[in-house]
């Protein structure tokens, strides 16, 4: 097996977090390439099944990022998702999976630096945590 290189799947809302990630690029801020994003219109679109499925398939970390509280383009999607993720993390603990593998962040369209920092920090944390124990089951 090659050296462990965490794989992060990020669900980014179109209006804030995805724009923030774009801004990080436009500002030429460098962050690890371990993160690959899936654009959705609102973080509220994130079905917990997406996260469970991604973990089952061996993703080491899942980042869900939406607008800041009160700034949701769709009024409250970010709030709904933050609650869902809190529950999901509890469920992960029950399943003996480290809940820290799933992160929810508020990143605005003007926070390119925050996006780069969150990714960098998450990658470092996942390196300490080690690979997803389910890795390899379906690869």
């Amino acid at each position: 097996m090659s050296e462990y290189d965490p794989n992060i799947i990020a669900f980014l809302c179109n209006w804030c977090a995805y724009a923030g990630a774009d801004l990080a690029g436009t500002s030429r801020l460098k962050y690890p390439s371990n993160v690959k994003s899936i654009r959705i219109m609102c973080s509220g679109r994130v079905d917990p099944v997406f996260i469970l499925e991604a973990l089952r398939e061996g993703a080491d970390g899942i980042l869900v990022a939406g607008c800041h509280p009160g700034d949701c383009h769709y009024q409250s999607g970010n709030y709904k998702t933050s609650r869902k993720i809190r529950l999901l993390r509890r469920l992960l603990r029950e399943l003996n999976m480290d809940p820290e593998r799933v992160r929810f962040e508020h990143i605005s369209a003007s926070e390119g630096q925050k996006f780069a920092d969150v990714v960098t920090d998450f990658v470092n944390e996942l390196k300490v945590m080690g690979p997803n124990p389910l890795k390899g089951e379906c690869q």
Partner: peptide
Amino acid sequence: DNQILAMIGVLNDCS
């Protein structure tokens, strides 16, 4: 759902 799950699968190298 199936479109997003397909993306997740590829990003995980899932066969």
